[in-house]
Write a protein that binds this DNA or RNA. Structure first.
Lengths: 247, 247
DNA sequence: CAGTGGTCTAGACCACGAA
DNA sequence: TCGTGGTCTAGACCACTGT
């Protein structure tokens, strides 16, 4: 046995979770106010808030200060496919998400310089890509490219355009190595507010470095995929002695 | 600006975090009791506990009921290398961690049956591998193998033995496909207590499915790697038109 | 302005661990 | 038993959102 009598907050969270998953409280709808819920469940406000915190960490509820607690609309679960060409790195999406992209030129910070194998303070073009499903931010990518490789028609802040990556890929020499480092962490405060997620929701952080045939790093990307709506899959094919790969 | 004046709990967490990272509070040491800390910082107990919760979620502090709060010994950061042969899937470790393994035969649950491509209720051998760095649990793996493929000398609960996977690999026909699905989530309560981590610390969950040359799934594994001490890296080599792979 | 969530207080009582 | 953390209360005050 795990809990002979679950704590109050878990009992309340379970009850609300049930009401949400059975549709008794519809997606997008506002929950009763915290004080109403507290008196309904006969608990104090902190206890009720703890219960809601559980649901927030699960990505089921979104709090908006001054407005209330809202049942999050179920976001499509995406699968990031690793190692593929950039153009098909996202699949499993019935239709592509809407993406906003902003591009700026920045000086490489130490960490970026190390990733790209350039000296610090080199000028890079940074693409910040925010994908949306409806009005809801879905996931976030920051892509860094040496300025001389960046497509110039994207560098001046075109607001939202589909599939930049496709265009980037056209311009790159053939890639020979893609290295993807995957970690799990909680979002930074900025990421949490950008993606409108609880800072307790785990995110998948993928750092992707792509090099061309000369070994030059042509792209580094930091992808932030909230764990409640994305997985990454990596497939390796070995034919007898370790070759053959399909993204 | 993000926070003009950080909340009390963040200020306290920052102060304690500083004391920990500068070594003013040594690794493994016990913090003053919560009531002492609360009076020291002139806050109430819940506020102080909120501050500690932040440090727990970062994996810096471990609470032990009835004993106190302890500064976690810094665990080695491991890199799981994807796609490789099973035998070298862990690398970056100076010396291998100590691993306890227990093996039991179970009936496949629906999810496992689907993973392994067998019918439900098929008998599987489950290996539960818990790796330790010193006395500290590091990470957790559950490996499922059809019973007829399981090495019999491991199925009767040999307590801890290094590198089961090596032995498993010897017995398997050549693998042609490894598919690794990576997600980020918070640990289940059981995982949190097994690994002695906060249930707010993000973990990397890797589901690995390996198939032999005939397409038979010979192994499914669920790895749980706490995000504060592990990454996974996947490297893909393309030679002109998409082949070549190295784990 | 009224209503909402955000933060904090000063306690109470329970459960666990070690002696 | 005692000291520890675990949970909860009842209420205060602040900050944000809408009218």
């Amino acid at each position: 046995m795990i809990q002979p009598v679950a704590s109050r907050r878990h009992a309340i969270a379970d009850d609300l979770r049930n009401q949400i998953s059975t549709g008794r409280i519809a997606a997008g709808e506002r929950l009763p106010s915290e004080s109403e819920l507290a008196s309904h469940y006969k608990v104090s406000t902190p206890t009720l808030r703890n219960a809601l915190a559980i649901l927030q960490a699960e990505g089921l509820v979104e709090k908006i200060h001054g407005k209330g607690n809202f049942v999050r609309r179920r976001l499509r679960r995406l699968t990031y496919v690793g190692g593929g060409r950039l153009t098909d790195a996202w699949s499993g999406a019935e239709e592509p998400l809407r993406v906003t992209i902003s591009a700026t030129n920045i000086k490489a910070r130490r960490d970026l310089a190390a990733l790209l194998g350039v000296s610090a303070r080199t000028t890079l073009t940074e693409f910040v890509c925010l994908s949306y499903e409806g009005n809801q931010p879905h996931s976030l990518a920051r892509i860094y490219v040496p300025r001389d490789l960046a497509p110039t028609d994207l560098t001046d802040g075109a607001p939202w355009r589909e599939r930049v990556e496709e265009r980037l890929a056209e311009l790159c020499p053939p890639l020979v190595e893609i290295r993807e480092t995957v970690g799990a962490r909680c979002p930074t405060p900025e990421e949490a507010s950008t993606l409108r997620i609880s800072s307790a929701l785990a995110v998948l952080a993928i750092t992707r470095v792509a090099a061309d045939i000369a070994g030059r790093v042509v792209e580094a990307a930091v992808l932030v995929l909230p764990g409640d709506r994305a997985d990454a899959v990596f497939t390796t094919h070995h034919t007898t002695e370790g070759k053959g790969k399909e993204g």
